Amino acid sequence: MAGRVEARLTELGIILPQATAPVANYVPFVVSGSSVVVSGQIPLADGKPAYTGLLGDSVSLEDGQAAARLCGVNLIAQMNAVCEGDLDRVRRVVRLGVFVAATPAFGDHPKVANGVSDLMVEVFGDAGRHARAAVGCASLPLGVPVEVEGLFDIAP
């Protein structure tokens, strides 16, 4: 029988990808007690960047939000690995750090970050409400426009 979160993902039409392996000298997540820190996830689909470029230049606000949402799907995939397929163990999305590659004049970083924030609430309900930082930067790995890291609380 599917869990509550798995049923919600199905209802939303979201199929979780396999959690991606790190490409450098780090681990995809660290579990410490009931806390899980997930390393930054970029908008990969089928192992390739689904979005590239800068907000305020070649990437629209809507595409930035979609990229952030895809980062969130990849965060949830990592959490699925942490929880060995039982996402009902996620008690809380505690914090998201959203990095937005943008031109100096771009100022809608929080609107881009809403792409992932909205997803977490859609998937986890009130447990998906979180603290957040949305930070602009000059560039991100592989030329993607958004990267998101997360802090979660899980049940044993």
Rank of each mutant, 00 (worst) to 15 (best):
M1V: 07
A2L: 12
V5M: 09
A7P: 13
R8L: 04
R8H: 05
E11G: 14
L12E: 12
I14W: 01
I15L: 15
L16M: 09
A21H: 04
P28Q: 12
P28C: 10
F29M: 02
V30Q: 12
V30K: 06
V30P: 09
V31I: 09
S32G: 05
V36N: 14
G40W: 06
Q41G: 10
I42V: 03
A45G: 00
D46P: 03
K48S: 15
A50T: 14
Y51Q: 08
L54Q: 10
S58V: 08
S60P: 01
E62A: 15
E62H: 11
D63G: 05
Q65K: 15
A67I: 04
A68L: 02
C71H: 10
G72K: 08
V73K: 10
V73P: 02
A77Q: 01
A81K: 13
C83S: 03
G85R: 06
G85Y: 02
G85S: 06
D86V: 05
D88N: 03
D88H: 01
D88Y: 00
V93R: 02
R95N: 10
G97C: 07
G97N: 13
T103R: 10
A105I: 03
A105G: 07
F106H: 05
G107C: 04
G107W: 03
D108H: 07
P110E: 14
K111F: 11
K111I: 07
K111P: 12
V112K: 13
V112N: 09
V112F: 07
A113V: 09
N114I: 03
N114G: 01
S117E: 08
V121T: 12
E122H: 14
E122P: 00
E122W: 05
G125F: 06
A127T: 02
R129V: 15
H130I: 00
H130P: 07
R132S: 08
G136L: 10
C137P: 06
S139N: 14
S139P: 08
S139V: 06
L140P: 03
G143Q: 12
V144L: 01
P145C: 02
P145V: 01
V146K: 09
V146F: 14
E147Y: 04
V148N: 03
E149H: 11
G150T: 01
L151E: 08
I154Y: 07
A155D: 14
P156S: 06
